[in-house]
Design a protein around this nucleic acid. Sequence first.
DNA 1: GTCTATAACAAGATAGAC
DNA 2: GTCTATCTTGTTATAGAC
Lengths: 203, 203
Amino acid sequence: MTHPIPRTRIQEKNRARVLEAALEVFSRAGFRGATLDAIAGEAGLSKPNLLYYFASKEDIHVTLLEGLVDRWLDPLREMRAEGDPQAELLAYVRRKLQMSRDFPRESRLFAQEIVQGAPRIGAGLSTDLKALVDEKAGVIQAWMDAGKIAPSDPHHLIFSIWSLTQHYADFDVQVRAVLGEGRDPIDEAEGFLETLFTRLLTP
Amino acid sequence: MTHPIPRTRIQEKNRARVLEAALEVFSRAGFRGATLDAIAGEAGLSKPNLLYYFASKEDIHVTLLEGLVDRWLDPLREMRAEGDPQAELLAYVRRKLQMSRDFPRESRLFAQEIVQGAPRIGAGLSTDLKALVDEKAGVIQAWMDAGKIAPSDPHHLIFSIWSLTQHYADFDVQVRAVLGEGRDPIDEAEGFLETLFTRLLTP
DNA sequence: GTCTATAACAAGATAGAC
DNA sequence: GTCTATCTTGTTATAGAC
């Protein structure tokens, strides 16, 4: 990696511009489908200038994914063992759904990486991710054992929250096509998912 | 399209070989990430021979998707208004989960097409797909109105079945990384999803 | 730091022999 | 029908002037 960590303010700002543009293009077209031309155009820079700030196309992609994973798991990290179990889980669902509304491009970027077998972030999945999920699954299991929420498999409960919320970002085109014009999918999902998880979790 | 509908048995067989190989490669790498070289290698044919059977790379991809959409919706079509509501819905969930087990590559191919905005099958979504879903949502609504199952939004109920079942095919890598070795994700999902939908649907 | 020009290569598609 | 060789285009990346 010949490109050093940026030090000046202008470098940091231009790197951010590139990453914003790259997020837009990568999330729409995938890694191979995205071209440096498209990213450069979106960023309002020339193609060589792009490669002044990043070593390669792959460097941009990896930088994007690394910055993403942490933020992606924040809603789960915030779940507190000390809080009211059902309220904590429902709040987690709302936070996660909110991310589908606020960061759909990030969700789609991540989805494509996973669907393709996580070729670029595979390692972190079985270590960092697994550790966090196992910990939180333990908290949920304790809640179930105490009779605070109805019993089910904690790991699959977490999977269900991921899939149900991310669906509205990743499959947005399909959801909108089916619902038709003039409906706000995520707005409706909020009520539906509250109903679903309330019925699932109430002892 | 200069390539005619195949008539001989050997043509049909070779086209099938190409499609099988293409499914493998496209589902792993996406449309742009897949190369004709990779598909040819997987099929055991030369690259020009591939293009003897299909007009272009896109032709292969479109053929694959067209053959897929119909089969993909079969489990929903089989849902009968005359049956027991809860049993019909739970059976639909089981059929859909079974497809994630039996046809994960098809699921991932479809997922990538949708995530990228359905550039190649977009049209069909708002017509055929919407029509079928609207019809079945009507059936579900009638069941709810009759008090046979607990009320919720029928469209989002169908979305939830899609997302929860397809998750185990599309995010397989992540699910396995989190669960660790020696567990059968879909086997476990069967029990979890039966619990989830029973609690959601029971009046 | 940013640009124009271009090198180097990968990949879709075709020509033409067999 | 199938192959080897090749054309052509698009794309990543670099060279070098400013």
